[in-house]
Design a protein around this nucleic acid. Sequence first.
DNA 1: ATTAATGTTCAGAA
DNA 2: TTTCTGAACATTAA
Length: 279
Amino acid sequence: MPELPEVETMRRGILKIVGSRISGIALIRCTRRPILVSPALRRFREHAVGHKVIAVDRLGKRVVVRLENRYRIIFEPRMTGLVLVADPPTECHLRFRIDFAGGKIAHVWYWDRRGLGSVRLVSDAELADQLGRGALGPDALSITPAELQERLRSGKRAIKVALLDQRKIAGIGNLYAAEILHLARIHPQRRCNRLRASDWERLHDCMHQVLQKAIRFEGSTLADGTYRNALNQAGGFQNHHRVYDRAGELCLTCGEKPIERIVQAQRSTFFCGKCQPRR
DNA sequence: ATTAATGTTCAGAA
DNA sequence: TTTCTGAACATTAA
């Protein structure tokens, strides 16, 4: 499930489209519900086709393709979406295609098995408006320690749940929340308003370490094998998970207690009771 | 054959 | 204001 490191890997995988001109757009109807409806498709044809890409950015868990005309194409993969430049995992869940003229990359594909994700075209103004309303908090890789503390500290929620709130901080999902809290030695059920300044500092530092390392390994491809990079290759960070999906196995850090699994906000949480003490 | 589980986001409710 | 719940979806495991 693409989180910040996976989406960052997708972004890097299509960086070579910068400077190329979009020559066409194709909607691929692979299931009863298309990823776009026809007004959106018309908008794409009107404002994206014929225009050059000037940058590829990332906003939390979204890939943002910036065009010369102040429009942006936003890929939001959610659970099973992939942004590809070649070889989809299967033909049958291809949803959308962008064609480029005169560059190294001829096509960018959007593939999505479950179809919960989206591809949207928004103007700079619309995006600024959404961000202005606080739809997304600061990105987990650019947020400062002070900002992190300021935005989360007053809440009563468990820190694990708060880290998943994209309006507070953008980019962290279920897997990386578990890994970050384990490295930071913070129990996932500790309430935000009970964390001390030193906890916030450590949390910020560990968040950076975990995310950067995961990006270096091009993200995590779990047992279901869904996540792939833009070249349809598996990531490697799953081999470095210390708690995620390891319930019952001995903690790799202390070697003394088995990893526990609990449910918070209807999602699995994994942690070590010894390395991540309550309080 | 059916049911649960998976995890992200959003709408709507508490 | 903040937090919580259920729905959207497709596929697999039990």
